[in-house]
Amino acid sequence: MAACRVADRRLSIPVWKVAPRAMPAITPERSRWFARNILPHEHVLRGWLNRRLAPGLDADDVIQEAYTILVSKESVEDVQNPKAYLFQVAYSLLVRHVQRSRIVSIRAVADLERLDLPAEMASPEQVLIDRDELHRLAEAIAEMPKKTQEAFILRRVQGLSQREIAARMGVSENTVEKHIVKGIRLLIDRFGRGGKRALGASRNDDTGTSGLDGGARDKSGG
């Protein structure tokens, strides 16, 4: 009784479809909205997803795809509670993957029936910049390889352009670009999938997370 066929499931939450899009650009406004309202919840979302994943699916797959849906949305003005919305989108994606994979454990489906969102859903985006942000950023920069670090500091701390950095360091612009890319990659690892909270995460989340992740993760381990 480990697995069963999933037939018609009545799932009230629609599966978001990503329409083929001609214009991929992410507007600066959307990017800011995203950084402020969505990114800070990634850590909680990952924990939440990890407890509900079907085999063959990784939380980051769902997160990336959910982000695609959120940044492709025509307008976000109607999104009252970005965190709840993010979780619903992620949830719908989970459901879709479960349906696609056909063979799933009964427990996975039963779990999916309840969209038990984290309790402190009503999080007004009260706070913006994490109190440790600068410190953690400084640490992230400190951990970068030497040349990458030099380029990254010139770009982010001194505000030089990639071209100016190339001149300053006596290397090609392509090389500078590679260093910046590497720096970005390290930021993703550090603040994204690494499980550390994103830049911009708020204190509210912090407290929410400890109650939410800790206990439940322990349970699923047993």
Binding site: I26, R30, S31, R32, F34, A35, L39, E42, I63, Q64, Y67, T68, L70, V71, I129, E133, L134, L137, A138, A140, I141, I153, R156, V157, G183, I184, L187, I188, F191, G192, A198, L199, G200
Partner: peptide, 13 residues
Amino acid sequence: ARAQALYDGSDAA
């Protein structure tokens, strides 16, 4: 979107 948002955020540096 995430890569850019994290990179933009690093402007705080």
